[in-house]
């Protein structure tokens, strides 16, 4: 390292550039970060208030399958309420939030023109990407954790601490149920790695933050649509969203983890591939923004 310091200015060390905490503060001061995190914290409260308007009438009893039962059971306890919050967010909201954190982080610096000044510091390119990725993932995790924690607290205060119920299996005791809900949140975090990978890659390839975030969400939706077409057969196993509902296996007793494992393989493989391409590309490309 002595060689490295001698080449640079006094006090400069590549490994000290863009400290994680500096990047955390860079992002924290942004309105979109505050809004996204605030919304994740507010969502359970909004849902809670919406349930208060429930007149007791049941106008759509055919919710269908495990999910329909989640709606019916949502007010049966804090755990079920949290589960409901997670289930309604998993399909779209979480995807958008994760895509926002991961797709926007590099692309927005490029669009502001501040990316080239960071690179001229110089922050080594791989380090820049790594720090940005870690912080974006951390914010995504915080968003998910906020949703879960606020859901648990608000739901438990309002509906009480009761076993986790579902129609696919018998009720699960509150202690074990908490573990299941945390496990579901954990699995959602794993599947969101795919979104994180896609959005981050697009964010590196384009200078337009909207393109990166929107692109990742569009790919996710396209994949969800294709996954509905059973005629595609085994190709569907390759779709990034194919295992996104596998968390429902955790509602079963005992918990079914085979699909979770496959989903985790799919997520880790996609994320690694995307991040690998992102690093490979970013460390070689001409930064023209």
């Amino acid at each position: 390292m002595s060689v490295a310091t001698s080449a640079g200015a006094t006090g400069y060390r590549p490994s000290r550039t863009l400290p994680i905490w500096a990047e955390v503060r860079r992002q924290a001061s942004r309105r979109r970060t505050q809004l996204a995190l605030g919304f994740m914290a507010a969502l359970p409260l909004i849902i809670l208030i919406a349930f208060e308007f429930d007149s007791g009438g049941d106008d759509d009893g055919n919710g269908g399958g495990a999910f329909g039962s989640l709606v019916d059971l949502a007010t049966s306890g804090g755990l079920n309420f949290t589960l409901f919050c997670l289930a309604v967010s998993a399909g779209f909201l979480l995807v958008v939030v994760v895509a926002l954190f991961c797709g926007d982080t590099v692309a927005s610096e490029a669009s502001w023109g501040s990316l080239r000044y960071l690179l001229a510091v110089p922050v080594p390119r791989a380090r820049l990407l790594a720090v940005k990725l870690i912080v974006a993932l951390a914010y995504s995790a915080v968003a998910l954790a906020l949703l879960t924690a606020v859901g648990l607290i608000a739901g438990t205060l309002r509906y009480g601490w009761h076993p986790l119920g579902s129609t696919v299996a018998a009720e699960i005791a509150p202690g074990a149920g908490l573990l299941r809900v945390l496990g579901i949140a954990g699995y959602l975090a794993v599947t969101m790695l795919i979104v994180a990978g896609l959005a981050f890659l697009l964010g590196v390839l384009t200078d337009a933050p909207l393109g990166a975030v929107g692109g990742a969400v569009m790919i996710w939706i396209l994949s969800s649509i294709l996954d509905q077409i059973t005629a595609l057969g085994s190709i569907r196993y390759l779709l990034p969203t194919h295992f996104s509902d596998a968390w429902q296996g955790l509602l079963s007793t005992p918990a079914q983890s085979d699909d979770l494992v496959k989903g985790a393989i799919s997520a880790v493989a996609y994320a690694t591939l995307c991040w690998g391409i992102a690093f490979w590309r970013f460390t070689r490309k001409d930064v023209t923004s």
Binding site: G8, A9, Y12, R116, Y117, L119, A120, P122, R125
Partner: peptide, 14 residues
Amino acid sequence: PGSPVLSRVGALVE
């Protein structure tokens, strides 16, 4: 890209 010696250069580009 990323040469440590860039830390001895201050820049305004574009």
